[in-house]
Design a protein around this nucleic acid. Structure first.
Lengths: 209, 209
DNA sequence: TAGATTGTTAATCGATTAACAATC
DNA sequence: TAGATTGTTAATCGATTAACAATC
């Protein structure tokens, strides 16, 4: 039962949000503890895999008892960094940008949207639930002033790389990229892609089989 | 050089849309052929992996020459099923539903949006780029009438399962699910999840490290 | 022909599953 | 204490990488 964690592989990291989601549901249902067997059945994973996964980051289980849901949830919350606030901006105030801006859940998990940016003068100065849309030329100064760490990129793919470069120069350390293109960024900058085309094409492949 | 393909693993399938994207770019640039080495450098994969991947579905390469880009692109197009049309509907005409409805790229790849559905009377009968929004109570009949095969689910998670059930009963065979919940569906029905929370939490984890 | 580059087999690496002793 | 269930080691499985003969 080490306090410090083993290396958590990317495969495990990608499952952490799912654990978090199921643990939250269990709390809502008022459950206090759960075994790897039960949780596995709920989530469609093997009990063995769950024990391996959870053991990567410390001994939150207890032989003969299982896992305390509250404790485990808190541990994952800390790992995921959703126990503290993050400052975000959205660049590109089209439908997708607006959809993200309107998604309350992110705010509740500590992702604070400070502003939106767009190049279209018709959108500039508009308000989205109290969030102002600025012209992109204001972006660099804004990022520096508010120490923004997460940039959410919702511009057309033609402009994605240049906006990403500007964000990074200004001090952003992670980009949530919705543009269907692979950004080139310096080492240490985190990119998380959401590529809707790739997702839809995968669905289409499976439909075709 | 078999015509019929070996089993294409899910790992490979998830890479196919990316190959497709890079091949299209190369065509735009007027290039005719490419080696696994060159393509690997562009895409950040090893040449070996590319040869393994492309060999799963037939011999489109030629020793000493490389791959004919046009041919390879066409082959992947067929595999992905984007060489023919698909009939789609969107359920949930919020910002996310609208963002998807407005994404021209999907139409160009053969994903024909036939209608949108919502429960909100303020949205019903509105038009989004020529696409009409109907009340969800019309959904079942519509799916049957137009033989809709792909349902795009953009409703709050509380309603996701029931709408999915209705879609499937009416004849939909694949659901592109944007609700942050795991749908229970009969065998053979295809689910492709886009879980924005899970993506953002993964980014947050990496930022935290 | 000679050089380039594939297709394919073998080696390696990593992730998942199985098994079971440790222990609550 | 006896039963349940973890933590952890070993076995298996699958995916990636390396190597090289085949061949364009």
């Amino acid at each position: 039962m080490e306090t410090f964690s083993k290396k958590v592989s990317m495969a495990v990291v990608r499952r952490l949000p799912k654990y978090y989601r199921y643990l939250n549901d269990l709390i809502t249902q008022g459950q206090e503890r759960i075994s790897s067997k039960e949780l596995g059945e709920m989530m469609g994973l093997t009990a063995s895999q769950i024990r391996q996964d959870l053991n990567c980051f410390g001994g939150y289980g207890q032989q003969g008892y299982g896992y305390n849901i509250m404790e485990l949830k808190s541990a994952i919350e800390v790992l995921l960094g959703i126990d503290h606030k993050h400052t975000c901006i959205i660049v590109g105030a089209g439908n997708l940008g607006l959809a993200i801006a309107n998604y309350d859940e992110f705010k509740r998990k500590g992702f604070e949207l400070k502003a939106m940016f767009d190049i279209d003068p018709k959108l500039v100065d508009a308000n989205v639930r109290g969030i102002r849309i600025f012209h992109v030329k204001e972006m660099t100064d804004f990022i520096k002033l508010y120490n923004v760490k997460i940039g959410i990129l919702c511009v057309p793919k033609e402009h994605a790389q240049i906006v990403a470069d500007e964000m990074i120069d200004a001090g952003v350390s992670a980009i949530w990229n919705f543009a269907p293109t692979d950004l080139k960024v310096p080492d240490g900058v985190i990119i998380e892609n959401v590529n809707l085309s790739e997702s839809l094409f995968t669905l289409s492949y499976l439909l075709n089989e």
